[in-house]
């Protein structure tokens, strides 16, 4: 990677700690900086606090210590509308993400909530659906699409907001190999910062030059994805396992 000049990073998390109202502490001081245009994988075992961290990025969870800023704008109550436009979260189950009666209306939801109307909105929706190759499905109800198609539309719903950073929670879960590859092609083609939460280590290696490991509420490692995956001791310490027969050393990444 080329060292970019000191632009404001897309995402800056500093000293973030959070305990759920029931007293369960999920984050113990997370520091993370993601530069503009970077694709970073967020790895970690179940219960590590990944979802909790993601929900802090657009201010759904708040009230702990530490700070989060998106492209320099702090995540605070008075900025929430703008923050939610800048942070596009694709949730794990597309049936939760796609709540409107047709694909087109669903993709239009975010920009329309921000006040966009008419031809501009139409154009925005068309462009987002084109980016994920779903333009022909605009008038279909989400329920009639295959799971892979729904996941792609879910990505389009946040792309339509032209986000600063795209956050994906387990994007490859439940996808068959072909849909998985199609999604990878789409993500690679996008010109946007990506933070990808995943257990799918080959997918992280394929898509994200850099990875961070979140474990027990702290960032336990941060580095080149290939280096992390090759560090057997580190992987075992954080319950991260490579699929049978997969050797990260044998893969050449760009």
């Amino acid at each position: 990677m080329t060292a970019t000049p000191a632009l404001t990073p897309s995402l800056e998390v500093a000293g973030l700690a959070y305990a759920y109202p029931d007293g369960h502490q999920a984050l113990y001081g997370v520091d993370l900086s993601v530069g503009r245009g970077e694709r970073v994988a967020l790895l970690g075992p179940n219960g590590a606090g990944k979802t909790t961290l993601v929900l802090h990025l657009n201010g759904i969870l708040a009230g702990g210590v530490g700070s989060v800023a998106v492209a320099g704008l702090p995540v605070e109550k008075r900025n929430l509308a703008e923050i939610r436009r800048r942070v596009g979260i694709v949730f794990q189950d597309p049936d939760d993400q796609l709540f409107m009666p047709t694909v087109r209306e669903d993709v239009a939801f975010g920009p329309a909530a921000a006040g966009m109307r008419g031809a501009e909105l139409e154009e925005r929706v068309g462009a987002a659906l084109d980016q994920v190759g779903m333009a022909d499905f605009a008038d279909r109800p989400p329920h009639h699409l295959s799971f892979g198609q729904r996941r792609r539309v879910a990505v389009a719903t946040v792309l339509a907001m032209r986000p600063e950073i795209l956050v994906l929670d387990e994007p490859s879960s439940n996808l068959d190999p072909a849909s998985r590859r199609e999604l990878a092609d789409i993500l690679r083609s996008l010109d946007v910062t990506v933070l990808m939460v995943t257990h799918d280590l080959p997918y992280a290696l394929e898509l994200c030059p850099r990875s961070v490991i979140l474990s027990e509420g702290v960032i336990a490692a941060d580095g080149r994805t290939q280096d992390l995956l090759c560090d057997e001791k580190l992987m075992r310490a954080h319950r991260l396992e490579l699929p049978f027969g997969f050797d990260p050393r044998s893969v050449s990444v760009a």
């Binding site: 657009n58 509308a81 939610r84 979260i89 949730f91 189950d93 939760d96 993400q97 909530a113 946040v158």
Partner: peptide
């Protein structure tokens, strides 16, 4: 979960 997804996309 749907509500979370809506709020995340600016539902107010």
């Amino acid at each position: 979960r749907v509500y979370l997804a809506m709020v995340s996309r600016g539902y107010a």
